[in-house]
Design a protein around this nucleic acid. Sequence first.
DNA 1: CTGGATTGGTAACGCGCGTTACTTGCTGGA
DNA 2: TCCAGCAAGTAACGCGCGTTACCAATCCAG
Lengths: 356, 356
Amino acid sequence: MAKSTTPGEAVPIRQRGITMKDVAKRAGVSRTAVSFVLSNRENASISEETRTRINDAVQELGYRPNAGARALASRRSDWYGIVTEIVTAPFAVDIIKGAQDQAWLDRRFLLIAPSDQADAVGPNQGLEDAATEKLLEQRVEGLLYAATFHRGVHVPDSANEVPTVLINCFDADGKLPSIVPDERAGGRVAVERLLQAGHTRIGVINLDPVIPAAVGRLQGAREALADAGLELDPELVVSGYATADGGYDAACRILDRYPESDRPTALFCLNDRMAMGAYDAIKERGLTIPGDIAVIGFDNQELIAAYLRPKLTTVALPFEKMGALGVQTLAALTAGQPILADQQLVDCPLLERSSV
Amino acid sequence: MAKSTTPGEAVPIRQRGITMKDVAKRAGVSRTAVSFVLSNRENASISEETRTRINDAVQELGYRPNAGARALASRRSDWYGIVTEIVTAPFAVDIIKGAQDQAWLDRRFLLIAPSDQADAVGPNQGLEDAATEKLLEQRVEGLLYAATFHRGVHVPDSANEVPTVLINCFDADGKLPSIVPDERAGGRVAVERLLQAGHTRIGVINLDPVIPAAVGRLQGAREALADAGLELDPELVVSGYATADGGYDAACRILDRYPESDRPTALFCLNDRMAMGAYDAIKERGLTIPGDIAVIGFDNQELIAAYLRPKLTTVALPFEKMGALGVQTLAALTAGQPILADQQLVDCPLLERSSV
DNA sequence: CTGGATTGGTAACGCGCGTTACTTGCTGGA
DNA sequence: TCCAGCAAGTAACGCGCGTTACCAATCCAG
């Protein structure tokens, strides 16, 4: 029997610093017994009666386990870390959102650390990545690296100490598993949608032709046309800065170059910001969307795509899904399970709105 | 002297599980000495020579402190927790960004936990807030609650166990410190800008008149007009849904109600999405911005405001700053310092672009 | 020469918990 | 009667580290 308990008051007055020892005392058992009950050990051999007595004591005292101590003793942390350039990225935060939600479902915490200097290609010699170091000090069981736009990156060597997954980027050195959007399939689905609507003369407003997004999307567009027995007219592909102004300029060029009879009836804009500019160019010329010219975008930057008039049909970058898949992949890795592939491509779904 | 070292290779081969004990052995000292050096104790009394020997050993072995163990022993965790509805909030993530950055500067980690069910007013009886519980299990030293839009909230009782600060919301029960935008000053600065540009007949596209944002902004507008000896004409205030369509409808009503001579020359839209719709209404009528009608928004939803044509002049909600200030306030509280006020109002800066 | 202060450390405890090895009491079969 | 076997627990160790108490050697004033 517990001696020093005051059985009269069963009020769950919660105060800091309640430990297993307190629970044990209250329940009149050893601390070990409490530990067994709380961790639900199978071959525990604790009678049903003491089990409930312990659970009651937990409730009454408002006991709350100390995750840190548990991690120390069990050598498992339930923590993942994610290194991200969120600081400079207004819209890829959905990666974190997806990862965060998935981690929460898996009852894990995601520690977020901002990467100071994420250089695209350079070896980033000399300065160790402080973010990675800090995360490893917390003994995270796995690491995620998230980029704001699809590209190759280098991760610090220390990342090799724990399972690591790259999101929206890939290991330029080639060994780490990564989750990236399937740009090619996305480009394909966009153009297929235009073809299905009857357009055969399609202008493309291209990004900087070097980045993986541009390469993949354009390739997909080409394939979709080829499937329909068509070819991508190089004259109809114009590049511009990846901004609304850039899209405006590019659209002007493409629209003014041809007589009405020969003008493209649809524009595939490789991102939504450029589509936004294209809208203005089209409207300025007294043309309607999608009546005279259909427009399809890419990225699904919600605030643009959903609020343009007419609302923009676009291909979505699956940020949330990539984040979630990253955590799932990490979970598999830390559990020692095999993963499906080194590079997982995630579908970019077409979002039908009103511009096609 | 350390006995089992292999002095030939000074290569920092980093392997898991290097502890202080290993460092001590390598440096030929006691573990206590290592601890003293690493924690930079002042009255340590360690000779300069052994100090460097220890630091060398740390480097050579690639020792990395175990934050969890340190937290357990020192009873300080260096962690804050933030409970947020990020899940449903596409754009208030900047709060997290600001908080995250500030926490990183303070060398602390910010644990993010999604709040399942954030009811505006209801007492949320029965279901304990799982997010708060989980964070307290991690022994966070302080809690932040962030809402996606300015309003009153209830926080679970457990939040009283550690210092707590509310961001972009306030404690409906009245006791917890909070950080909120200064809506009134924001409304004032918006209208002052229009007055300064020579506009005296100003239409207001209002939000749901119940929420704090609408109340404050409208009040600010009224004050600015009063300062100029003018009054807000109730006829010129129209409400609508807080969307682009709602703004479009409201703008149509206001524009079509008056003959050109009597038409307002400026519109103060209480959020940017409504301003977006207002743009369309204005352009449809063959009017120019800002030539015929000036438009000013509120919120600074970057993707809208910066990419509309012309770019939208608007008043920014200081999400990042509120997040940072929240962490700073929490730091003060956990350090036992007094805070300035129970409710801190953060300035909403005017962002001049091209629509006024 | 003595004794107190200073320098340069070390031994040992405890943080809260997981886990292993061990003990105790009881039942039932030979 | 005796011992194997099981149910129901407990003692004790260690996770990696911060921290306090203690110790040995040296220095210097009296």
